[in-house]
Design a protein around this nucleic acid. Structure first.
Length: 574
RNA sequence: UGGGGCGUAGCCAAGCGGUAAGGCACUGGUCUUUGGAUCCAGCAUUUCGUAGGUUCGAAUCCUGCCGCCCCAGCCA
């Protein structure tokens, strides 16, 4: 037996099985399959409440649920957990579907709503009453809280706990019929007021709430609670593995109680994993909503937001997000993943796929004093060196150019491989130039223009172009470049964990420089009409994406992420 | 002071009684007309929260202790 195991291990190692490490949920499923549970089926679901926009934490759950289904040739449903009409809106159900699709997952025809089950759920509740497992309670919310006891003291039974089945049934039907005011009565499970698990102290199953539901309108004035609706919705859909986040672990006994009490056996199995946290951002819907509502960001899809729509607008790709979700793993320990892993994933993806462009963010004029006045050369440059199939584009080159302000220093420190008086650099895809004169504003002393000479012999691609210089700069031709707006983003928060100090308002840690707008940037003309959403690598700078705001005519670019930059790191460490 | 979870490098995370995978980050070096990418190397020298115990052998089993997270909504 042991030898066999070892052989299996060695075999999978020899095959270089990259998915060799199996997470604890896959372990459970493997075991279930081995035992023949669920007739070998794997059926999961992603069950958001439509009360906000999805964020990267939801992406983890989506990838997990849809991913497991795919891996085991099973199914995954999309189900809206819409049991609280006062918080839910169609706007959200639409954005959620859009985001899940965009991430690359498909629920086919299995789009469900808990509200579709309201009638069946109601019937289950009546059954519970008839079995003496549920009762109508007239205690106020306040009283229920008081009767519940505390973490260390048991609760007390409600005085309404022993109503007869007949009375309970009558009352519950009257609740449904609208005979009582909101909050006047609730239906409760009759479990155990002394349970150490507070969720088991006669939990509320139904409440009266007169609110127009986004799907059922005013058909109902009683709504099931999550703890009642969720296990039954799972059961109705034939879910085998109901995967939730850790904070629902304490609800599992109740989940199982509901199923058992409704004679559903075997029922779905609830499994809990740790939700995702990311450094330098917040993930709770409440806090994200606050940022939107008080104008700290421009909307749910602000490129600084960790929402799916924000990441999409920023320029993240579904591939990168899926890759990220795979790399972070699935476990039960609360963890905070370093944002640099997410950044790594998008760099890796875009490096392979994004066309290269030269774009000068903060222009500094360069005049090539020995270049003919009216001459324009078209110089070829590869669109993506990682993928020769993407071909070439032409770059106009002329006497007057712009380079990046920070690529010139009058008194450079050691190891500054860029332009300075008397030094030489190569202009990418073009010539080696040498700085011969520095023109300054007579009043401010600010450098306004550089005079350089170019070396005709060093034209890119020519046999004599082999001369080496330390630095290579990006540039644009003054007469040909297209003005664009560039938006640079940094982390939304200055602190790694903005939630850390519960006492202080998390917003004191907002990064005042999370957005910087550059309105004088110039891009090479070849990309001057780039399409909305298209992504580029701006040479030596980072990856950029065309923002929807470009619709007005002028191109607006979002910086997705900068390139790794050992130079600035070196400078900072000094 | 009740109950439920979790503790493996700076951050994730494998490991399931046979002698610490992998990724990110970081550090060197190679290469380079992107200070990018690539490639190579280094990165827990009895160490897995901690103290004991069982065992020929423990991150893995047992016991105590410590730390962190969740639960007292008619939210999900």
């Amino acid at each position: 037996m042991e030898t066999q195991n070892r052989e299996i291990k060695e075999m999978s190692q020899e095959q270089g099985d990259s998915s060799a490490s199996v997470n604890f949920i896959q372990m459970i499923i493997n075991q279930d399959l081995a035992e023949g549970k669920n007739q070998g089926r794997v059926h999961t679901r992603f069950p958001p409440e439509p009360n906000g926009y999805l964020h990267i934490g939801h992406a983890k759950s989506i990838c997990l649920n849809f991913g497991l289904a795919a891996q085991y040739q099973g199914l995954c449903n999309l189900r809206f957990d819409d049991t609280n009409p006062s918080k839910e809106e169609v706007e959200y159900v639409e954005s959620i579907q859009n985001d899940v699709h965009w991430l690359g997952f498909d629920w086919a025809e299995r789009l469900y709503y808990a509200s579709d089950y309201f009638e069946r759920l109601y019937l289950f509740a009546e059954q519970l009453i008839m079995k003496g497992k549920a009762y109508v309670c007239d205690l106020s919310a306040q009283e229920i809280r008081e009767f519940r006891g505390t973490l260390t003291e048991p609760g007390q039974n409600s005085p309404y706990r022993d109503r007869t089945v007949e009375e309970n049934l009558r009352l519950f039907r009257e609740m449904r019929a609208g005979a009582y005011d909101d909050g006047a009565r609730v239906l409760r499970g009759k479990i155990d007021m002394a349970s150490p698990n507070l969720n088991m102290r006669d939990p509320v199953l139904y409440r009266i709430q007169r609110a127009t539901h986004h799907r059922t309108g005013d058909d109902w004035c009683i709504y099931p609670m999550y703890d009642f609706a969720h296990p039954l919705s799972d059961a109705i859909e034939g879910i085998t593995h109901s995967i939730w986040t850790l904070e629902f672990e304490n609800h599992r006994p109740l989940y199982d109680w509901v199923l058992e009490s409704c004679d559903i056996n075997p029922g779905p199995q609830q499994i809990e994993f740790a939700r995702l946290n990311l450094t330098y951002t917040v993930m709770s819907k409440r806090k994200l909503r606050q940022l939107v509502e008080d104008g700290s960001v421009k909307g749910w899809d602000d490129p600084r937001m960790p929402t799916i729509s924000g990441l999409r607008r920023r320029g993240y790709t579904p591939e990168a997000i899926r890759d990220f979700c795979e790399r972070i793993g699935v476990a039960k320990s609360n963890s905070t993943v370093d944002i640099s892993l997410l950044e790594h994933c998008i760099r890796e993806d875009l490096n392979q796929r994004a066309p290269r462009a030269m774009c000068v963010l903060r222009p500094l004029k360069v005049v090539l004093v020995n270049y003919p006045e009216d001459q324009v050369e078209m110089l070829p440059g590869e669109i993506n060196p990682e993928d020769p199939n993407m071909g070439m584009r032409d770059l106009p080159f002329s006497r007057e150019l712009y380079i990046e302000q920070e690529d010139f220093m009058e008194n450079p420190p050691k190891k500054f491989f860029r332009l300075s008086p008397g030094s030489e650099v190569r202009l990418k895809h073009a010539y080696i130039i040498k700085c011969v004169d520095v023109i300054k504003d007579s009043v401010t002393g600010e450098v306004t223009e550089l005079h350089c000479t170019y070396d005709l012999e060093t034209k890119s691609g020519m046999p004599s172009s082999g001369r080496k210089v330390k630095g290579t700069l990006h540039w644009v031709s003054a007469a040909h470049a297209v003005p664009v707006e560039v938006r640079l983003y940094e982390n939304l928060f200055l602190k790694e964990n903005p939630d850390e100090d519960q006492e202080e308002d998390f917003k004191v840690n907002l990064n005042p420089n999370s957005l910087e707008v550059l309105d004088k940037a110039l891009i090479e003309p070849f990309w001057g009409r780039a399409a909305l959403g298209s992504k580029f690598q701006f040479l030596r700078q980072g990856y950029f994406c065309v923002d929807p705001d470009s619709a007005s005519g002028r191109l607006v670019f979002n910086r997705v992420v900068s390139l790794k930059d050992t130079w600035s790191k070196l400078m900072k460490s000094k």
